[in-house]
Amino acid sequence: MSDSARNLNQIVKKLHEVDNVFKFGEKMIPVIEGFVSFISDFIPFVEQVSGSIQDTRSKIPEASSKLDKVTNATELAMTEVLDKIDEINEQLENINECMDNLVEKRESTAILLENLKEKIIGNVEANEILDSINKNIDFGLSLEMVKNKIREITASTDQITMSLQVQDITAQQLAAVNHLIISVQHKLGGLLNAVDSANFDGEDDLAMEKLPDVHFDANATYNPGENQQGEVDSIVSSEKASQEEIDKLFS
């Protein structure tokens, strides 16, 4: 075959290919039209989603601020409770002091009565009165009961004080939630930028709240019944022992 015939064959082949492309194009036109129509329908939806995201995002600072207010309010309330506990403890201390004074006075009165007894030997009537007085001032048992009650109340106030540590733990949990929702705000901001940055009204909208520093324990839990300290102590002991072994090796 000559070169010109070979070239003609190639041209015919290419024309067939072009023809196939046109035929494929014809088939694709309805698909493309459908796609364009879909996109046209989709744009309002995207705008709606964008609006919802922006709306949600704008509410986050308020939610975050409310969480902070909850933490502050509970801290204030806890301070008031601790003030009351201090007052109760102070009063209990005063009662204890009064009790001690009472015991001292009873003891000195008992000594005086004993002296008196020696001076009224033989006087039956006076001795009977003395016995009655002795019985009246024998309130040792009642004193002990009151002291026991004071100890019980003190133990209860100690328990309340311990339970109030829950405030610090919940404050850390709230801080963790706060951090999470501000992170969501940042993510939504990024999403909005990607969807349609023109939807932002101005610079203020773009200025997202800065992610707060992490100064909370997200895993903080209140488990007063568990022997958590015992577990901590055993870790501390074993770690300190290991460190001592290492120190010995290097000394």
């Binding site: 801290e75 601790l82 109030l164 610090d168």
Partner: peptide, 10 residues
């Protein structure tokens, strides 16, 4: 935490 400081001090 003000509460915790108070508890430790008490």
């Amino acid at each position: 935490s003000v509460t915790m400081r108070r508890i430790v001090v008490n």
